[in-house]
Lab assay of single mutants.
Amino acid sequence: MSGNGNAAATAEENSPKMRVIRVGTRKSQLARIQTDSVVATLKASYPGLQFEIIAMSTTGDKILDTALSKIGEKSLFTKELEHALEKNEVDLVVHSLKDLPTVLPPGFTIGAICKRENPHDAVVFHPKFVGKTLETLPEKSVVGTSSLRRAAQLQRKFPHLEFRSIRGNLNTRLRKLDEQQEFSAIILATAGLQRMGWHNRVGQILHPEECMYAVGQGALGVEVRAKDQDILDLVGVLHDPETLLRCIAERAFLRHLEGGCSVPVAVHTAMKDGQLYLTGGVWSLDGSDSIQETMQATIHVPAQHEDGPEDDPQLVGITARNIPRGPQLAAQNLGISLANLLLSKGAKNILDVARQLNDAH
């Protein structure tokens, strides 16, 4: 009898209710805020589980004197976190989706994509230029951005401005803007500013005609071990179906173009009346040469937790077992079709030249 009692006690200790789920994140304040929001949602869904947040620095956090596009290494903000995932030191990792490459290392998958916040870019102005827009900034004003995508589009749109690289986390960039006289304004992701509670610093939100956004911008991705079915089931509740389908289309477009950090590629997606609209573009580094096109596809946005595919093969690095396969494939095909259209119009040449120029500098 006593033996059975011990077995029952052991089973209770090993039951999922007692389990601590370890969540990996970057150390920056924004990353911690984003991770806290994901953990809060998981806690609400699984009140019996405990969650421990483990923060670590990544290569991208450490190399702050070089433009991201020049470092010449993929997975700048993800490699150390993936290493911890691989060694079973954490069970899942919360990322900004735009930091996750469209091809993940073997053994990993994006197990959830959370509801997207505003994906557009924002302009934050130096205190002396508050009330201005990019259009009304004085001639030769210097605007800071760490992104080739932003610089290429904005140089084309605002030729009277000069664009220079600015690195560091959000706090560091804002301090550089406010305390030094080098920059009249800087460009940042609206979602990051909003998550930090800095709505009052948003001086201008850039519309798609001015600057399309990065693939996955404004959404959070939760990376897990691809074979860890328990954790895949656990994080599945975080999937937002519309965000998922938009981001599958965007990531398929980028992957098929073979774009990345070192080339200016941008997108804009919208879901309306059962249609998914995808606009994508590529630019030369100075913005003088560009190709942009829009395509659409009829896609039914499923309700969360309709029964999805059981075999769960990944699409552009994403596993969404609780979302039907048909809409996911339709979104992926839309991204591939748009990429093929741009490639047929000469996108590869623009991107190759951009890559060579970026590598040469």
Rank of each mutant, 00 (worst) to 15 (best):
T41I: 12
P138D: 10
R201F: 05
A31D: 01
K157V: 10
Q217E: 04
P119V: 10
V353L: 06
R167T: 12
E306K: 15
R195Q: 04
P105N: 06
M271V: 10
T35M: 10
P101L: 06
T294V: 12
E52I: 12
D359A: 15
E242I: 01
L220R: 03
D99S: 01
S146W: 10
I318F: 15
R116H: 04
T41P: 06
D36E: 11
L68D: 09
T298A: 08
D121F: 01
H95L: 09
A249D: 04
R246A: 14
G60R: 05
D311Q: 11
D289S: 10
N322I: 08
E117D: 12
A152E: 05
V353S: 10
D99N: 04
K140L: 11
L357S: 15
S75N: 15
S146L: 04
G346N: 07
I336L: 05
I323R: 07
A226Y: 13
N358Y: 14
E52Y: 10
K157S: 11
A55T: 08
D99M: 04
G280A: 14
Q275P: 08
N171E: 13
E306P: 07
V237L: 13
E306F: 15
R246C: 05
A152P: 07
H95F: 12
K62W: 07
D65G: 09
R156A: 14
S69K: 14
R156S: 13
L244G: 01
G308V: 13
L254A: 01
C247M: 04
L100K: 01
A249L: 04
A249P: 04
Q328P: 10
L193I: 05
G216T: 01
A214F: 05
P119S: 10
A44H: 09
G221P: 04
Q180M: 10
I166H: 09
I291T: 09
Y213Q: 06
S288Y: 06
D286K: 05
E210Y: 05
V235M: 11
N200K: 14
R22Y: 09
Q194R: 13
D312S: 01
V23K: 01
K74G: 09
R355V: 13
A191W: 01
P313N: 08
D99W: 01
V94N: 04
G197N: 04
A151W: 11
A84M: 14
F51W: 10
G236D: 15
E223I: 03
G60I: 01
P313L: 12
A226H: 12
V103G: 12
Q356C: 01
R32D: 05
Q29H: 10
G48E: 13
A331T: 08
H207Q: 12
N322L: 06
W198E: 12
P127Q: 14
T78L: 10
D61G: 03
G335A: 03
L244H: 03
T133R: 13
N322Y: 08
L220Y: 09
I33S: 11
D99E: 06
S147G: 01
